[in-house]
Every structure is written in structure tokens, then in C-alpha cells.
Amino acid sequence: MNIFRLAGDMTHLLSILVLLLKIYATKSCSGISRKTQELYAIVFVARYLDLFTDFISVYNTFMKVVFIASSLAIVWCMRFHPMVRRSYDRELDTFRHYFLVGASFALALILHEKFTVQEIFWAFSIYLEAVAILPQLVLLQRSGNVDNLTGQYIFFLGAYRAFYILNWIYRYLTEPHFTRWIACVSGVVQTALYADFFYYYFISWKNNSKLKLPA
């Protein structure tokens, strides 16, 4: 564990807390893509199949349980909470996310570290996480306006990815045999998807104005 990895995990956790806060405080999920949230729930369940087979640390187990539980809770709220579900932007959230699931799984069958159920699901979750933000970015682009908490949620998610890249650079330089092509290449792709959002986020922050994305 290095400082970049810890910062990455903490910003990831913070992003989820911000999203839960938004849903809890405003009883609204407007601006949030349910499809992206469902993809994240699939990502965590598929990746943490090792929860019962490999023990790494109390920290690791705790974070895995938090990520699985929070992602399922968010999806549950957006689908079933009587007030929250009413604010869901159904007509804006039309990205065909099943396509991403299928493509990621197909890629995992071709590119994996080892041909075992756990490793294929692990690779699948890495590929799916890389593209899971797409329905959310498309929804924001369509609605144009981004409320503060939604903007911060995506900002922290992007920061989490950026810290993970720094973590890999650090590990590559300090650990003798650190090579993780699947995670690193997917991670760079994932971070690149945020570049556009970050650009507009910083402009609005610099001008102290409301975040707006171009149509």
C-alpha cells in the first residue's frame, strides 16, 4: 500500500459517499445514470468473487464489502425507493449498456491472465469498469446541466482513476516484477474517458460558475 493507492481508494469511497449523500439528502437521483450504477454493481460482484477464497487484509475485505453493498444499495434505491425512483431521468438514460457487458465478457474470454472462472470474471470486471462510466457521461451530455453533487461525484471517480495510475507508476518503479498489463491498460483507457469531463469541470471551477457541458 502506497500513498497513491490509498488516495485512490479514499477518493473512490468519497465518490460513493457523495452519491449516497445526494440521493439521501435530496431524495432524488436526477442526473445519475442507473445503467452506470448497475454496471458498477456487476463490476464489484464479478471482481470480488475472491472474497471467500483469498484473504489479503482486513482493509481489503472491508473495502470489498463496502463497494458491493453500496453499489447494490444505490441500484435498489433507483429502482425501488418510492421517491427516488420518480426522479430518475429514464428518457435520457438510453445507452445500450448490455452491449458493454457482452463486449467486456467476450474480451475477457480472449484476454485473461489464466483460464479459470475467477480470473475470467476478474478480467471481465476490469474491462467493464473501464467503460461503465459511458452511460453516465452520455446522460450528462444530454441534460447539459450538472448539479453540484453529481459533478463532485464524477470528479472524485475520475480522481480515483488518476491516483491508481500514479500508484502503478510508483509500483513499477519500486517493485521488481510489477507487470499488470490488463489492469494498467484498461485503467489508462478508463481515465482517458474522463478527460473531457475534467476539462469542463476545471473551467467551471476556475470561473467559479456552474458546471455546464456543451451539447
Binding site: D9, D50, E119
Partner: peptide
């Protein structure tokens, strides 16, 4: 056989 792949990141 020793398990070589340990995914220690989240």
C-alpha cells in the same frame, strides 16, 4: 500448486 495471481488492488 501455489497461487501466483493475487489481486491485491480493489
Amino acid at each position: 500448486l501455489e497461487k501466483v495471481l493475487i489481486h491485491d488492488e480493489l
